[in-house]
Computed example of a mutant assay.
Amino acid sequence: MSAPAPAAATWAKPNRCGVIAALDTPDPARALDWAAAVAPHVGLVKVGLELFCAEGPAVVQRIAMHRPVFLDLKFHDIPNTVAGAVRSVCLEPPAMLTLHAGGGGAMIEAARRAAEDAAGPRRPAILAVTVLTSFTTEGLAETGVSGGPAQQVLRLARVALAAGADGLVCSPHEVSRLRDAFGDAPLLVVPGVRPAGSAAGDQARTATPEDTARAGADWLVIGRPITGAADPAQAAARIAAGLAG
């Protein structure tokens, strides 16, 4: 397999851990308001399934006027289908794009090739989602996976990186293990991050922004602690200041 292309400017490794604000709403007007408010304090904004399914690709272009977009659609299908989906979203390429590592090496390699063909040097970073932050050991066992989240994250990470993924999505609990196993090269994008005193919600494997950054994360994906605050801009600024030390 050929060596990875140089990182595009919008998703190159940051000098210090940065924040991605998750715009989890089906309402485009609300998402745009949030994006405008938090833009001075975050590096990227996340468009996920809820907003994308409600509004389609056009909303990505509108959101990207404020900050580069982390498009979190978690593709998981046969390689040809995923390649076609990647080509479609790369017409106006986001900065980062997710797919499930569980789709296997052939799917991940097909996704990367499709991104390169469709967007060239402007292609998004291909990020492989390992184990969702809502999963516990018991939840994984229900699906037939033994050994718990940490072991499964490492298994899937090896497959994804060997197939050409630029980085991984994992919970805060696996960051240091991934750094020990794979070094500084992979981008590590981490949801399940909760400032001290915040409710965990439906996340099972969480940590604070400061602890997650110290473990070696590149980007923290933070939604409700920002967008659910009375002043999202102030909440984002406070988190960013904490990471700056």
Rank of each mutant, 00 (worst) to 15 (best):
M1W: 07
S2G: 11
S2C: 00
P4F: 01
P4C: 02
A5M: 11
P6R: 09
P6C: 05
A8Q: 10
A8I: 01
A8K: 11
T10N: 12
P14S: 02
N15W: 00
V19H: 01
T25A: 08
P28E: 05
P28L: 06
A29G: 03
A29Y: 03
A29M: 10
R30C: 13
D33L: 06
A36H: 10
A37E: 14
A37S: 12
A37Q: 14
H41W: 05
V42R: 08
V42T: 01
G43T: 06
C53M: 14
P57V: 11
V60A: 09
Q61K: 15
Q61I: 06
Q61S: 12
R62S: 05
I63S: 13
A64H: 02
H66L: 04
V69D: 10
L71N: 09
L71P: 04
D72W: 02
D72S: 10
F75V: 05
F75R: 13
H76L: 07
P79V: 13
N80K: 11
A83L: 07
A83C: 08
S88H: 15
V89W: 09
L91R: 15
A95C: 12
M96I: 14
L97H: 09
L97W: 01
L99K: 11
G104L: 14
G105W: 09
A106V: 09
A106S: 13
M107W: 00
M107S: 01
A110K: 05
A110G: 08
R113V: 05
A114P: 03
A114F: 04
E116Q: 14
D117M: 13
A118P: 03
A119K: 05
A119C: 11
G120V: 05
P121D: 14
R122V: 04
A125N: 06
L127N: 10
A128L: 06
T133H: 01
T133Q: 07
T133V: 01
T133F: 09
T133W: 04
S134K: 01
L140Q: 08
T143D: 06
V145H: 15
G147H: 01
G148I: 06
G148L: 04
P149Y: 04
P149T: 06
A150N: 02
A150L: 12
Q151A: 12
Q152G: 05
Q152A: 15
Q152Y: 07
R158D: 14
R158T: 10
R158K: 15
A160T: 01
G164Y: 00
G167V: 02
C170Y: 07
P172M: 08
P172F: 05
H173R: 08
V175M: 09
S176R: 13
D180Q: 12
D180T: 10
D184W: 00
A185C: 02
V190T: 15
P191E: 07
P191V: 09
P195I: 10
G197S: 00
A199V: 04
G201F: 01
T206C: 06
T206D: 10
R214E: 13
G216T: 08
A217N: 07
A217E: 02
A217T: 05
D218N: 15
D218Q: 10
W219H: 14
W219G: 02
L220G: 05
L220A: 13
L220C: 11
I222Q: 03
I222D: 07
G223K: 02
I226F: 09
I226H: 00
T227C: 14
T227L: 12
G228A: 13
A229C: 11
D231R: 10
D231C: 07
D231Q: 08
A236Q: 03
A236N: 01
A236R: 07
A237C: 05
A237R: 15
A244R: 12
A244F: 09
A244Q: 15
